[in-house]
Write a protein that binds this DNA or RNA. Structure first.
Length: 749
RNA sequence: GGGGGUGUGGUGAAAUUGGUAGACGCACUGGACUCAAAAUCCAGCGGGCGCAAGUCCAUGUCGGUUCGACUCCGACCACCCCCACCA
């Protein structure tokens, strides 16, 4: 028998046993209550990091706890395997993205196994496997049939220097991350998912998810951004055409004195008079060039240009000049805004700049507003003035009254608008799911017939990082015959946003090998929804909203019968560490500093504040080192003990050592007492000191149970076990009451 | 500008939701063991006064509610995160 705590020996012994016995493999057992525990699956970047250790340690505790409570626990793991880092590695090092990705997966799988997490590895999936993404292509085809997937022209970030499309994350301060040149907006035809069709339902259900953290629900509600108002038509002065606006402030309609259109508005050019045309064209070109940079700049100036045309305010019958304005967004509302300078700050600034008329229609309490002397717009409540028969009403009441009036007179109608935009899923990238569409000169856009799926991502594609979609360069991929008419045709060469894969993987885990559909209805019926989902707060909006959307789409496509994917959600904080930097050598890894000095030059190291661990700042800890030095249990214990899960976890080397010390203490407590407790039976009676220990043992059981179950206070659960261990060390009456000691020790273990 | 969050010892944090503030850990200090060190064990550890039993002060600041407030309400200060010209 070993003489001291040997984490490596203990852990590898049990990990081997779990693997051989398939201990965590599960199947549907109808008479047994299920519990589906899921942690957000990792991107196979190459190595696991402390954020994974934390996330998966939390999940593993809950999974094991629920198993001990008798649940049939599904706890799967897989890989969010498509994405740009694989492609970047290919461009920089010449490795194929597939090779890079699968090698990384092998690496990380081995690391996760060394951490001892209780996964059912038989359900492992990788989203870059054809067997996974072919079902995604099928879902897309069904969505296309129903109009839930459609194509429209839209703007992408384009680096004119690199000749390539950039993702939003690749644009820093309006400039390309690689060459630092200014990014332009380029118009491309792109695929979209009609998530806006589900805006109302996605919003409604945020009030019916009691197991979600309130801040996440609030963020989703804000992101969906429902607002009620009116669409109002403004007739043009010398034409039968009209400009339609959306407003939430129909109470200010009588104060609308000019009109602002987005530069991308379809009527922008036709409204330009001959005299104004050069100025208008110049303005549109300039805004298009700036568009992204302007969003990030603080001191952004409102700018516009007069088109030369006029429209008529439908209630005052007054002429309103039509401007193009750089702050009006084409993709919200109708891309046209009725400008009320007295009661909207942007319109106010714009009016002052271009000397446009002001008319007060809401008078607050106190001194009367005077258009000539106002210094800012009045956006608060007040009494209606200069508004015909609505004068004297409170402006909130007038909102209703004017909306009814507009609707009755056919000038406008009540409507609802969302900030949520349709989800653009086209990516001009190689390493992703091919979009199963064929373009034929005769038949137009033709979906790939279902029996022709999958559209396999070809391996032999050259990746340079320049130009458009890499797949476009593979002629064997691009050139096909039209499935409808048999003429020569071309394949779609864009791939899906990787968020598409992560929007339904939780359902595929219920039936990872199901051969005839994306999901097996029966398996899904048993396992879904996920009873506990765990992951980083950074996914509060995008991933979690897309997954909710997909769940509803799959339901409406008749593929499964689930309304919401995640019944309970736990969002864990980041793992942080102090940064170290040397004036000469920049950021330093912890091992590059000793005694507060840089090991290279001896300069005193500057200590930064705690920041999220990141390779770029070199404030990282490699879980492998931790496992080798202390064992996986120490790594797991520390990541649970140092902070409650929703808070940021501050890395502390000495804290880790403290956890290791504690595990040593536990081991010794058992080992040193083996002889004493060897022959003792179950604890029945107890007295004196023994009675106190017994009570503590049982109080600890209750405390730990309450702390883990639903509360997720792992730190206090561990503290309670530490107290019990302290009491075991203090217990002296071993010889007379060995059963009490044995019970306490077994409880700790 | 909008939304969300945080503020408790030297330090990470507890206080199960209005009832003994600081559990548990880290750091530190003293002691035991050792030729010595490491490891381990024991003790102390918010501040003031006191030899002591004690006692007063203390949860960002200022007010309020309450028999009682880290917890609830109001105002303010500081820091962090997210969204950001959404009509």
């Amino acid at each position: 028998m070993q003489e001291r705590y040997n984490a490596g020996a203990i852990e590898s012994k049990w990990q081997k046993a779990w693997e051989e016995r398939r201990t965590f493999k599960v199947a549907e057992i109808p008479e047994k209550e299920k519990f589906y525990l899921l942690e957000m699956f990792p991107y196979p970047s190459g190595r696991i990091h402390m954020g994974h250790v934390r996330n998966y340690s939390i999940g593993d505790v809950v999974a094991r706890f629920k198993r001990l409570q008798g649940y049939n626990v599904l706890h799967p793991m897989g890989w969010d395997a498509f994405g740009m880092p694989a492609e970047n590695a290919a461009i920089q090092h010449g490795t194929h993205p597939a090779k890079w990705t699968y090698e990384n997966i092998d690496n990380m799988r081995a690391q996760l196994k060394k951490m001892g997490f209780s996964y059912d590895w038989d359900r492992e999936l990788a989203t870059c496997d054809v067997d996974y993404y072919k079902w995604e292509q099928l879902i897309f085809l069904r969505m296309f049939e129903r109009g839930l997937a459609y194509k429209k022209s839209s703007f992408v970030n384009w680096c004119p220097d690199c000749q390539t499309v950039l993702a939003n994350e690749q644009v820093e301060d309006g400039c390309c991350w690689r060459c630092d040149n200014e990014v332009e907006q380029k118009e491309l035809e792109q695929w979209f998912f009609k998530i806006t069709d589900y805006a109302e339902e996605l919003l409604d259900w945020t009030w019916r998810l009691p197991g979600w953290p309130e801040p996440v629900l609030i963020m989703q509600r804000n992101w969906i951004g429902r607002s009620t108002g009116c669409e109002i038509d403004f007739p043009l002065e010398h034409s039968l055409k009209k400009i339609r606006v959306f407003t939430t402030r129909q109470d200010t309609l009588y104060g609308a004195t000019f009109m602002s259109l987005a530069p991308e508005h379809p009527m922008a050019l036709e409204l330009a008079t001959d005299a104004q045309r050069p100025a208008v064209e110049e303005f549109i070109a300039r805004v298009r060039r700036q568009e992204k940079a302007r969003r990030t700049s603080e001191d952004f100036e409102k700018e516009g240009v007069f088109t030369g045309s006029w429209c008529i305010n439908p209630v005052t019958r007054k002429r309103m000049p039509i401007y193009l304005a750089n702050f009006v967004l084409m993709d919200y509302g109708t891309g046209a805004v009725m400008a009320v300078p007295t009661h909207d700050q942007r319109d106010f600034e714009f009016a002052r700049k271009y000397d446009l008329p002001l008319s007060v229609v809401i008078q607050p309490e106190g001194p009367a507003l005077d258009p000539a002397t106002m210094t800012e717009a009045w956006t608060g409540p007040g009494t209606m003035v200069n508004s015909a028969f609505f004068d004297g009403l409170g402006n909130e009441a007038a909102k209703e009254a004017i909306a009814d009036y507009l609707q009755k007179d056919g000038i406008g109608k009540k409507t609802v608008n969302y900030r949520l935009r349709d989800w653009g899923v086209s990516r001009q990238r190689y390493w992703g799911t091919p979009i199963p569409i064929i373009y034929c000169d005769v038949c137009g856009t033709v979906p790939v017939p279902e029996q022709d799926l999958p559209v396999v991502l070809p391996r032999d594609v050259e990746l340079t990082g320049e130009g458009g979609s890499p797949l476009a360069k593979s002629s064997s991929f691009v050139n096909v015959t039209c499935p409808q008419c048999g003429e020569a045709a071309r394949r779609e060469t864009d791939t899906f946003d990787t968020f598409v894969e992560s929007s339904w993987y939780f359902a595929r885990y219920a039936c990872p090998d199901f051969p005839s559909a994306p999901v097996d209805r029966q398996a899904v019926e048993y396992w879904l929804p996920v009873d506990q989902y765990i992951g980083g707060i950074e996914h509060a909006v995008m991933h979690l909203l897309y997954a909710r959307f997909f769940t509803k789409v799959l339901r409406d496509l008749g593929m499964m019968n689930v309304d919401e994917p995640f019944a309970n959600l736990l969002t864990q904080g980041m793992v942080c560490m102090e940064t170290l930097s040397c004036p000469q050598h920049g950021w330093l890894y912890p091992e590059e500093a000793a005694d507060g000095r840089c090991v290279k030059c001896g300069t005193v190291v500057a200590q930064g504040r705690n920041e999220k661990m990141s390779k770029s700042k070199k404030n990282v800890v490699d879980p492998d080192n931790l496992i080798n030095r202390f064992g996986a249990d120490t790594a797991r214990l520390f990541s649970l003990f140092a902070a409650p899960p929703e808070k940021d976890l501050e890395w502390n080397e000495q804290g880790v050592e403290g956890c290791y010390r504690f595990l040593n203490r536990v081991w010794r407590a058992v080992y040193d007492n083996l002889a004493v407790i060897a022959d003792s039976g179950p604890a029945s009676g107890s007295e004196g000191e023994g009675r106190t220990l017994r009570r503590l043992t049982h109080r600890t059981i209750r405390k730990v149970t309450e702390d883990i179950d639903g509360r997720f206070h792992f730190n206090t659960a561990i503290a309670a076990v530490m107290e019990l261990v302290n009491a075991i060390y203090a217990f002296e009456d071993k010889a007379r009451q060995p059963a009490v000691l044995r019970e306490a020790l077994e409880t700790v273990v």
